[in-house]
């Protein structure tokens, strides 16, 4: 049992050390942990896009679809992501990573910000089926929870 995490850390470190060698490379070459968390963010974005389309009136409100998207966001936010945020995969170590080293220096704060998203997402999942106003009201807090973490821990870039 104690051996497994060590192997994981060693593998992660190896990936991180070799990462600069394929700077400017395609995302397919990113360390698995970075690919995993970027995929996770992509799933958030897809589901938020469905809700934001309804909130802005570019898509018709549909209670079932809204509930499904909001439930997905809530489910995603409650996944255990500890292996996504592997040490040595910050934006200094890995070209293509947008996670600042500061994240690993402030793990308790990053976890607290993640929990704030879980709370906001659960609230939205509970009300998204009630009507358009509920989606419009609940999406703001979810976006702000995402933004709170990006503000401190996401690399500014084009």
């Amino acid at each position: 049992m104690s051996k497994f995490p060590k192997i994981l850390i060693a593998a992660t470190l190896a990936a991180a050390v070799s990462a600069p060698a394929f700077a400017e490379s395609h995302s397919a070459d990113l360390p698995p942990a970075v690919k995993a968390r970027q995929a996770h963010m992509q799933l958030y974005a897809h589901n938020i896009g469905i809700l934001a389309g309804m909130a802005r009136g570019t898509a018709e409100y549909n209670a079932e679809a809204a509930s499904a998207a909001a439930s997905n966001i809530a489910a995603l936010s409650s996944l255990n992501q500890s292996t996504y945020w592997a040490p040595g995969t910050d934006s200094d170590a890995v070209e293509g990573s947008r996670a600042l080293p500061a994240l690993w220096e402030n793990i308790p704060d990053a976890i607290a910000k993640g929990e704030a998203l879980t709370t906001a997402a659960a609230a939205l999942a509970g009300t998204a089926g009630d009507g358009l106003e509920a989606v419009q009201a609940g999406l703001g807090p979810v976006g702000r929870a995402c933004g709170a973490c990006h503000e401190d821990y996401q690399l500014s870039d084009e």
């Binding site: 974005a45 938020i48 973490c149 503000e151 690399l155 500014s156």
Partner: peptide
Amino acid sequence: DFDVAGGTMA
């Protein structure tokens, strides 16, 4: 594409 503003833009 529903990324959320980060850094000082937040």
